Simulated scan of single mutants.
Amino acid sequence: MFASKTDNPLRVPSVIVRAEQRTVHQADGPVRAGIPEHGRIPRYYAVKVRLLELIEELGQGAVLPTERELAERFDVSRVTLRQAVTELVLEGKLSRRQGSGTYVAGPKIVQRLSLVSYTERLRRKGIEPGRNLITLETLHAGEDLAGDLDIEPGADVIHIERVLLADGERVGLESTYLAAQRFPTLLEVFDPSSSLYACLSDKLGVVFAEANERIETVLATPREALLIGTNPALPMLLLHRVSTDAGGRPIERVRSLFRGDRFSFTTHMRADD
């Protein structure tokens, strides 16, 4: 039967199944994951659940009531409320704007992992891509980089570092390394504000065939956080990629750092993969 209702704003609804003496929670929400086995719900998490309900009611772009108003509504301290709000900011469900308030964030940009350029992936979703050049230089390859690009250690490599934009918003930071000997004219024909993939394909005749990619979660360094314009405590998605042509020859090594509150990635798998 249903648990009795209460005016306590921190109460999390549940259904009691007497036959098995266990609690069944909603299947599509965040409640079950936040409740420890002993059943005692952290106070901040109960507030977080209520905030998620409020976010759904308000809708994208709406401003959240003030911290004082929410603390009074949920009958909790501001410290407890702040912890719940901070988690929702880190998860990308809320966004803070200095001097303005806290807003309901829009949906994350969902990207499929594929051999398609950042430019093309965003345009397919109706989002305007952009880039701000940070670094364009020639360096000497260390052993690891040389191994990835199949060149001798100490050989020249072209390093291109750019802030990635989505509809004018800074969402990531990308560093690309290419063998200078293989692409001696790249710096003459490449426009840093445009797609590198398009330049390699259309102007230099490069055909991308395969790529090995690894994803992990990290925190941005102070420099990276400053360039992307985000809180250093915000989780980031870090992608490492080495792309090759049809002959298996490395084309590039890329390190892409994306805001975890704005991006998620999908892939398709088969049984024989």
Rank of each mutant, 00 (worst) to 15 (best):
R123G: 00
R124C: 15
R124I: 05
K125S: 08
K125V: 03
K125T: 07
K125N: 14
G126Y: 14
I127E: 03
I127A: 08
I127D: 06
I127S: 05
I127W: 05
I127G: 03
E128V: 11
P129V: 04
P129F: 01
P129M: 03
P129K: 05
P129W: 00
P129Y: 06
G130D: 01
G130M: 08
G130E: 01
G130I: 04
N132T: 15
N132H: 06
N132A: 10
N132Q: 12
L133I: 05
L133T: 11
L133N: 06
I134H: 00
I134V: 15
T135E: 14
L136D: 02
L136P: 01
L136Y: 04
L136G: 01
L136K: 06
E137M: 01
E137Q: 08
E137P: 10
T138E: 12
T138I: 15
T138S: 13
L139D: 04
L139R: 10
L139C: 05
H140Q: 14
H140F: 12
A141C: 07
A141E: 03
A141I: 01
E143S: 15
E143A: 11
E143C: 10
E143T: 15
D144Q: 14
D144A: 10
D144F: 11
D144M: 07
D144N: 13
L145M: 10
L145W: 02
A146C: 06
A146Q: 05
G147K: 10
G147Q: 09
G147V: 07
G147R: 11
G147L: 05
D148M: 10
L149A: 03
L149I: 07
L149V: 10
D150H: 13
D150T: 06
D150A: 15
I151L: 13
I151A: 03
I151N: 08
I151P: 09
I151D: 03
I151M: 14
E152N: 13
E152R: 09
E152M: 04
P153S: 06
P153E: 03
P153K: 14
G154Y: 14
G154M: 08
A155P: 13
A155H: 08
A155R: 10
A155L: 08
D156P: 02
D156H: 13
V157N: 02
I158F: 12
I160Q: 00
I160A: 02
I160D: 00
